[in-house]
């Protein structure tokens, strides 16, 4: 297991290193750079700015400094907002995005598990079809279409929930639902397939042969075995939530990282774009690593066999 974790951590750093180098090259190539408005500056002012950002140093020196800063958690300085460093910006906005993401993840997964269980236990009944339809819609309908629909129905038409902005927890309901569709759909489909497979396995037959009743079969024997592998889809689910948050926060005007990111795209604030991108990468890669390790810890088959697959 320790060997496996070490290997995974090394790959994680390699991936991050690659992304970081790539963003550095982009920063150097992009036309906008910090000096998008440079023409308005005098030569002296320009020198001051160059000096301040260290742009006079040779490229390798800049590269090493950039990587060093990243390692310290410094994602650079915004060009748009005077001297606001990206890390502070992210930390300031993180709260809202985290609330939405956590709500969507927790409720979405729970509802998905329930739907998937119902579908598997009542296979080929109305319940199964209903739950399958919800799952297909959840996977198929893009989050922004769904978010706009929710906003139009509940905020504009029925006027029962806020249209947007952050005015307390109520504001988080619609965007959380919009984001939760993905986790609901993925969890429901996954649990359904897993449950059906587990229910047809030999050990369920043996449990039946022992005289276990329906409830014991479903929850004591099958559920645990179907639930454990669900951890593996948490990585893709997190990636989906992140992608979704960009548009959903935009649509509901939630002052989170996603909205900040989309804004920085339209204002060509490359430092924020790159910084946030780096932040996203670290976030997702660490999540996937944690998920994989967690899976190994929870599943006894993997836990004790020393991580060999």
């Amino acid at each position: 297991m320790a060997k496996y974790i070490t290997k995974r951590v090394i790959y994680m750093f390699l991936s991050l290193f690659l992304i970081a180098s790539f963003t550095f090259v982009l920063m150097k190539l992009l036309p906008g750079s910090p000096l998008a408005s440079a023409s308005k500056l005098s030569v002296e002012q320009r020198e001051v700015v160059y000096e301040k950002y260290g742009l006079n140093d040779p490229i390798p020196v800049q590269y090493v400094r950039y990587m060093g800063n990243l390692a310290k958690g410094d994602f650079g300085v915004s060009f748009q907002y005077k001297n606001a460093d990206v890390t502070t910006l992210i930390v300031k906005k993180l709260k809202y995005s985290a609330i939405l993401g956590a709500q969507a993840l927790i409720f979405g997964t729970l509802i998905g598990i329930i739907l998937g269980m119902i579908a598997a236990l009542k296979q080929n009944t109305v319940w199964d079809y209903g739950s399958t339809i919800i799952a297909i819609l959840g996977i198929s309908i893009p989050s922004f279409v769904f978010a706009v629909l929710l906003q139009y129905v509940f905020a504009v038409w029925l006027e029962v929930l806020p249209v947007g902005l952050w005015e307390g927890w109520k504001s988080s309901i619609l965007p959380s639902i919009a984001l939760a569709m993905g986790p609901i759909a993925i969890a429901a489909r996954f649990i359904r397939t897993e449950m059906i497979e587990v229910l047809s396995s030999d050990y369920i037959l043996l449990a039946k042969a022992k005289g276990a009743n329906w409830f014991e079969i479903a929850f004591k024997h099958a559920f645990r075995n179907a639930l454990i592998p669900l951890i593996t889809v948490l990585g893709p689910v997190a990636a989906g939530l992140l992608t979704g948050s960009l548009v959903v926060e935009q649509i509901f005007a939630i002052p989170g990282i996603g909205q900040q990111f989309v804004k920085s795209i339209s204002s060509n604030d490359f430092a924020v774009i790159m910084g946030t991108t780096m932040f996203f990468s670290v976030f997702l890669i660490v999540i996937i690593l944690i998920v994989d390790i967690l899976y190994g810890v929870i599943d006894p088959r993997i836990r004790l066999s020393g991580g060999s697959k």
Partner: peptide
């Protein structure tokens, strides 16, 4: 009670 053919799959792996 019953004994099945394949002992590799007839026990619950997570119990």
């Amino acid at each position: 009670s019953m004994i099945f053919q394949d002992p590799m799959t007839s026990l619950n792996p997570t119990m």
